[in-house]
Amino acid sequence: MTITSTVKNGILFVRLTGDLIGSSDTDQLLQSVNAHLGEELNHCAVDLSETRYINSTGIGVLVSLLTKFRSRGGEMVLINPADHPKKLLAITKLNNIFTVAADEVAARQQLTPAAI
């Protein structure tokens, strides 16, 4: 799994490439996000367009991140989940809990009103 993160206009954008399946992947993701939380960021967009596979551990960390941002008064959006993550979100009914955006522009539009 490769994780890249950038901050644009007060929103943390995280891109995941590969499989989000194990504790080393989820630990790395949590560490990456936690490193930015000191910057008083309350909004996050996680790009899943290049994430091939997510298991229950990966879903758990996404729920944890969502809870973390919402407890800070913010929000988290998933960007364009690939086929398997999209199906898993539907099967688990988490597509009703997560906000999903088609691309980075749509994610920014959904998070910007919350940031104002």
Rank of each mutant, 00 (worst) to 15 (best):
L20T: 08
E39R: 15
L111S: 05
S71Y: 01
F69Q: 05
R52Q: 13
R108D: 12
R108L: 13
H84L: 13
K68P: 00
N55S: 10
G10W: 09
E40F: 07
A107E: 09
L78R: 05
E40V: 02
A90P: 00
L78D: 02
M1C: 03
R72H: 07
V63G: 05
L29S: 12
T112R: 11
L48Y: 02
Q109W: 01
G60D: 04
G58S: 11
T67V: 12
K86M: 07
I54N: 00
L65F: 02
R108T: 15
A102L: 14
T67W: 11
G22S: 14
G73L: 09
N95W: 01
Q110N: 05
H43C: 00
C44G: 10
T26I: 06
V33A: 02
H36Y: 13
A45R: 01
V105T: 15
D103H: 07
A114G: 11
I21W: 01
I3W: 06
A35V: 02
V33L: 02
L20V: 09
Q28A: 15
T26L: 03
I21L: 14
E40D: 14
V33D: 05
S56H: 06
A82E: 15
L62Q: 12
P81S: 12
S56R: 10
I11S: 01
S23E: 12
H84A: 11
N55W: 09
T57W: 07
R15I: 11
A90S: 14
N96D: 08
A106I: 10
F13S: 04
T57P: 04
T26W: 06
G22Y: 10
V33R: 04
L29Y: 11
V14Y: 03
I54Y: 02
L29I: 11
E39Q: 15
M76A: 06
V100C: 08
L66V: 05
I91T: 11
E39C: 06
L12I: 07
K87D: 14
V63C: 09
G74Q: 01
N80H: 14
G10H: 09
L78W: 03
T57E: 12
I97P: 01
G10A: 08
E75K: 11
M1Q: 01
Q110H: 06
I3C: 08
S56K: 03
T26P: 01
D19V: 05
T4D: 13
V105M: 14
R15N: 14
V63F: 03
V63S: 05
D25Y: 07
L37S: 05
H43M: 04
T4Y: 03
H84S: 10
R72T: 09
L20P: 05
D103I: 06
M1Y: 03
L94I: 11
